[in-house]
Nucleic acid binder design. Structure first.
Lengths: 180, 180
DNA sequence: CAAGTGTGTGAGTGCACACTTACAAACAAG
DNA sequence: CTTGTTTGTAAGTGTGCACTCACACACTTG
């Protein structure tokens, strides 16, 4: 049944985002994502063209979920000004990455951009998100840039575990970042 | 001669930063850094306690160089206001990472923060840089936060190769970032 | 029922790589 | 010269992992 194979791919992709997020591309064996998806390693290799194909597909799924969340967040904005819409998008993003999988996957993907296919997937993901943010919020270039700069700051805060650091420098970096 | 061993360690560390920066911790064999340093793999293992010890030491060297460059940059500031000093520091940082090794190494280190020793090294590095920036520039928390947020944005720009992308969304993200 | 097609796996295979060990040359001290 | 220490390497060893293949069950079609 063709639909079953397609359903499997979705399951595997969700598992892949979670598992790759922890230890990254090179450090996670495809056995691990197969186990997380509840199927055999051999079948994962049939569903995707090698480990790299799996990772690239997972990157697509990751950015899909991010784009959807931001889009939904924009709908809940309090007003029509760029500031209000960006703020609502930021809140939606913060909510989405509460479980950390999507954030950590992005970090892992950025770390293996020496592989051209991954670099292209990352560009495609940010292209999609950035163009939507700009057009939907009617924000200026500078506002969009700021939006992503503080998004990237979240990556540092989470990977370095700065929320747990009580020292002043860490408090300065984490100040105002919504529920990490 | 003890001094020679110490000199070797420095050589190896410089090589390690460059080599790890390209492909990351898990994807680069220590043979590669040994070759870059011009010595045998076995001797690298004698100079450092395993691959992880080498990587952590390289992280220390990386943040040392960053801190030194920012410190030197601050000396060249045009004035005494926080804005002028932060700007001079930003310029110094941008100059330093022109060769990309230090920037990419930071990305790679952030990607393997699931290893506790690496996470601690990253925190120590940012602790050193952030405390210096804040005390030297007498900047507010918000200014320091902004400084690092746009620094992290540079990581995205470089890893995704956004300087090469002519599309509007990419131009918005790269606008005003000093000579990438 | 026979033949074909899609879904799924267990049991390999081969290679890359982290780390060790045994050994050698240089230099120093007595 | 002998003994000891430091610098350095060549040649393993064992393991983990990407990827393959032969095979099996299910389900459809004629």
């Amino acid at each position: 049944m063709r639909s079953t194979a397609e359903a499997r791919r979705v399951t595997v992709l969700n598992a892949a985002v979670s598992v790759f997020a922890r230890a990254g591309f090179h450090a996670t064996p495809v056995t691990a994502v197969a186990a997380a998806a509840g199927i055999s390693e051999a079948y994962v290799f049939r569903l995707f063209s090698g480990k790299l194909g799996l990772f690239v597909a997972a990157a697509g799924a990751c950015f899909d979920r991010i784009a959807d969340a931001i889009e939904a967040g924009a709908e809940r904005a309090g007003g029509d000004s760029p500031e209000e819409i960006l703020d609502a998008m930021g809140d939606a993003y913060a909510e989405l990455i509460a479980d950390r999988d999507l954030l950590l996957f992005q970090v892992q993907a950025q770390a293996v951009t020496d592989i051209p296919e991954v670099a292209e997937a990352v560009r495609a993901g940010y292209r999609r998100v950035a163009t939507f943010v700009q057009s939907r919020a009617q924000a200026s270039d500078a506002q969009v840039q700021q939006f992503f700069a503080y998004g990237q700051l979240c990556h540092l805060i989470v990977t370095a575990g700065l929320e747990q650091v009580p020292e002043p420098w860490a408090r300065a970096l984490t100040a105002g970042i919504r529920h990490p």
